[in-house]
């Protein structure tokens, strides 16, 4: 079982790693690149805590092999803030107390950012369905949905 050499780009940085063909992208991000922002809540694509984007497409990094990342552009929660300036979504999540334990927060942020890039004016229903793959056990989703929709409104006003 020889290891595979992978060159990819994560949050704009060119990176390389060696991985077992069975290792997921999530394993590689966390264990090889020390990017532990993405979490493994289920390993079966059902909780969304490991959400990242690959070439702009929202995916669960637990449902993709590390080997498949070759040549891709990957964005994780660690890349959402611009230097020391938080993304509006990050600010609103804190302001709305849209997190309690915070384990789902990285996945929610990546997924919500992807939603707003695709649909700057989502309805509550669209927001809820887009985030249906991001389980949160603490909040009942209420404050999360409000934070995302308020961010969308703020971004629309700013643009």
């Amino acid at each position: 079982m020889s290891k595979l050499h992978v060159s990819t780009t994560v949050n704009g940085d060119a990176v390389e790693y060696l991985c077992d063909p069975r290792e997921t992208l999530l394993d590689c991000l966390r264990d090889k690149l020390n990017l532990t922002g993405a979490k493994e809540g289920c390993g079966t694509g059902d909780c969304g805590a490991c959400s990242v984007t690959v070439d702009g497409r929202l995916v669960c990094s637990c449902l993709m092999l590390g080997a498949e990342a070759e040549g891709k552009q990957i964005e994780t929660v660690e890349g959402i803030a611009d230097g020391d300036v938080l993304h509006p979504l990050q600010k609103k999540m804190i302001e709305y107390a849209a997190l309690q334990c915070g384990i789902c927060t990285p996945g929610i942020l990546v997924a919500a950012k992807s939603l707003l890039e695709k649909n700057p004016n989502p309805t509550e229903e669209e927001t809820r369905y887009w985030l249906a793959g991001n389980l949160c056990r603490c909040t009942g989703y209420d404050k999360i949905i409000r934070a995302v929709m308020d961010t969308a409104a703020e971004l629309r006003e700013a643009s």
């Binding site: 063909p21 069975r22 997921t24 694509g45 449902l63 092999l65 498949e68």
Partner: peptide, 26 residues
């Protein structure tokens, strides 16, 4: 064969099916 992988990876991870050969067709 590995296309989207949304079933293959779940089975791999849970030790239900560990392929000896995985062919990515993308």
């Amino acid at each position: 064969f590995l296309a989207g992988g949304t079933d293959v990876l779940v089975q791999l991870r849970s030790d239900l099916v560990t392929p000896d050969t995985l062919i990515d067709i993308k």
